[in-house]
Write a protein that binds this DNA or RNA. Structure first.
Lengths: 197, 197
DNA sequence: GGCTGATTCCTAGAGCCTCTAGGGATTGGA
DNA sequence: TCCAATCCCTAGAGGCTCTAGGAATCAGCC
């Protein structure tokens, strides 16, 4: 009988699809092996262990998400860019809940350091900063506002996922109004006072 | 030999401590049984299954967190209340990472419905709304702003936990400035236009 | 084609986990 | 004292991760 033709990349892609289908926490080495008609021990030649597999899903998700956001934000500035960024972020999470959940894992310092080197991470930061510069922000406000935005986007999506919103119908409108509010916030950002660190 | 004197409440409390110690995902029926010097099968008379145990941790954490926030916010209004609320929220999460992680589980609709009946949930909503009313907000802005705040607080804590911040030393300052910004945001909230739902 | 080395996938098995079924021990109350 | 409820146990099925070592298959080379 022929081989399944496995590779780390193929496994990661399949695992990501599996995560979107059945939930990130349900992604398991043995279930993935089953999907390829192969024994679970076979996967350990391609992937170090379960955690390694999950981190790979996270990196894949991060890259894809950054790609989407980048194409949506391209050529926009100000509120246009903010809304495009936020919507691309949220839509990716809704389209790929498993991959998105992977990106929200708790990483070890080593994993963070490794990921920080990746192109995706840097591009993602570039995108955010570019957007914020259009609001006239400079460091350290750039960092602070960036953190606040990332936190808010993630928090909103997370709440939406975890059923924290009681009236699902109004989510779209709530989200739109939150973006209005964030735009106002960025325009009125309480600037850092140089004299009074 | 005597009995261990187990009960659902005792198990939940011990499981919560365990979650804070070793991480929410490491909380396991057999590990918990070991802690009580008892066989794992014994716990299943008190707790339905692992998920049940985890949901109990979440409810306990939610109650405790609401208590803390309530006492901190009591007697304050405006920015004072906002800062007290936010700091109590964040501090609880940092003090009890396992319990906090539990509150951020993905719940089934039934679990959400059950939790929505609990006193803690209602009190938590009351607290938020009371705070926002002091900013002169009314529905539906109350709902939208409340969602945005909850999302932001959670997102910030989550980012902090997951190592999303590269410069740990500046987190405190970033957080303080984000609270300033949120205060400004609430004062300049783009009010709902009744004519144009 | 035949050889060779690397890679792929396998079997076997240890160890840990969840959860069920059913039975003996311990308790508090009648 | 005795009964019923409750607690905790043993036994066991089944799933998961991961290691060790062996057999099959592939690619490239003569």
């Amino acid at each position: 009988m022929g081989r399944a033709g496995l590779s780390a990349a193929k496994l990661t892609e399949a695992a990501a699809e599996m995560a979107d289908d059945v939930g990130f926490e349900q992604v398991t080495v043995s279930a993935l092996a089953r999907r390829f008609g192969v024994k679970d021990a076979s996967l350990y030649s391609h992937v170090k262990n379960l955690r390694d597999l999950r981190v790979r899903i996270a990196l894949l998700g991060g890259e894809e998400m950054t790609d989407r956001i980048a194409t949506e934000v391209a050529g926009r500035a100000g509120k246009d860019a903010l809304v495009a960024f936020a919507n691309a972020y949220r839509r990716y999470a809704l389209d790929h809940p498993g991959r998105y959940a992977a990106t929200q894992m708790r990483f070890t310092p080593e994993e963070v350091a490794a990921a920080a080197d990746s192109a995706g991470m840097r591009r993602s930061i570039e995108l955010t900063y570019g957007m914020l510069r259009a609001y006239g922000l400079t460091e350290p406000d750039l960092t602070d506002a960036g953190r606040l935005l990332r936190a808010t986007f993630h928090g909103y999506v997370h709440l939406e996922f975890s059923g924290g919103f009681n009236h699902p119908r109004e989510i779209e409108e709530s989200w739109a109004r939150s973006l209005d509010a964030l735009h106002v916030l960025l325009e009125n950002w309480p600037r850092h006072d140089r004299k009074n660190g």
